[in-house]
Amino acid sequence: PDDEWKERLREAEEKNNWKLFEELARKAGVSEEKIEEWKRRWS
C-alpha cells in the first residue's frame, strides 16, 4: 500500500495538482509539518 500512495503522489506532482497531492498525503498519514515543508519547497 505504501508504494501505491507514493505512485499517486508522483502522479499528482507531475500534473502539478497540489490539492490532490495534499489530500493523498493527509490520507497517507503525512504530518502537516511535512506537508507545509513540501509546499514551501514546491512553490
Rank of each mutant, 00 (worst) to 15 (best):
E11Q: 06
L24G: 02
L24S: 05
F21W: 10
E4M: 10
E37H: 03
A28E: 05
R40L: 13
E7M: 07
E36R: 10
L24R: 03
E11T: 03
N17Y: 04
E11A: 06
L9Q: 02
E7H: 07
E33R: 05
W18E: 01
L24D: 04
R40W: 09
R41H: 13
A28V: 06
R10L: 13
W18I: 06
W42F: 14
R10E: 10
W5M: 05
E37L: 04
E36Q: 12
E33H: 06
D2K: 08
L20V: 09
E11W: 05
K39T: 02
L9H: 03
I35S: 00
D3K: 08
P1V: 13
S31E: 06
E22A: 08
K39Y: 10
N17D: 14
E37S: 05
S43D: 13
E37F: 04
R26Y: 03
P1F: 14
K15V: 09
K39W: 07
K34T: 14
E36D: 10
G29W: 00
L9N: 02
A28N: 08
R10P: 05
E22K: 03
K15T: 14
K34H: 08
E4P: 07
A12I: 06
A25P: 00
A28K: 04
W38F: 10
R26D: 01
E13S: 14
A12M: 08
K19A: 14
N17E: 07
E23W: 12
R8L: 15
E14T: 07
K34N: 06
K27I: 12
K27Q: 14
W18M: 05
E23F: 10
L20D: 11
E13K: 15
W5V: 04
G29T: 00
L9T: 02
P1D: 14
S31D: 07
S31G: 05
W5A: 02
E32V: 05
K15F: 07
E32G: 03
E4D: 13
R26S: 02
K39E: 04
W18Y: 04
G29A: 01
S43Y: 13
E33W: 07
I35E: 00
E7N: 06
W18P: 01
R8K: 14
W5N: 03
L9R: 01
E7W: 06
P1R: 09
E4H: 07
K6W: 15
S43F: 14
K27S: 12
N16F: 06
S43N: 14
P1G: 11
R8Y: 13
E37T: 02
S43G: 14
K34E: 13
R8W: 15
I35K: 00
D3I: 07
E23P: 00
A25K: 00
V30T: 02
K27L: 13
D2F: 11
A12G: 02
K6N: 12
A25W: 03
L20W: 15
A12R: 01
E14F: 13
F21E: 00
E22S: 04
K34Y: 08
N16E: 07
E13F: 15
I35P: 00
W18Q: 01
R41N: 14
W38K: 02
N17I: 06
W38T: 05
E33D: 09
R10H: 08
L20K: 06
E23G: 03
E37A: 06
E37K: 02
K15W: 08
D2V: 09
W18S: 01
R8A: 15
R41W: 15
L9A: 09
L24N: 03
K27W: 13
W38C: 12
E23I: 07
W5F: 06
P1Q: 12
W38P: 00
L9D: 04
F21N: 00
I35G: 00
E4T: 08
L9C: 12
E32C: 10
E11D: 11
E33V: 08
L9G: 03
W18G: 01
K39S: 04
L24T: 09
G29L: 02
K15I: 07
W38G: 00
K15Y: 08
S31H: 04
E37M: 05
I35C: 00
P1N: 12
E37W: 04
E7Y: 03
W42P: 02
P1T: 12
A28T: 02
E13V: 15
P1S: 12
K15N: 13
N17P: 01
R8E: 11
W42D: 01
K34L: 15
V30W: 15
N16Q: 13
E23Q: 08
D3W: 10
E11S: 04
E23C: 09
W42M: 05
E36F: 06
K15C: 15
N16T: 05
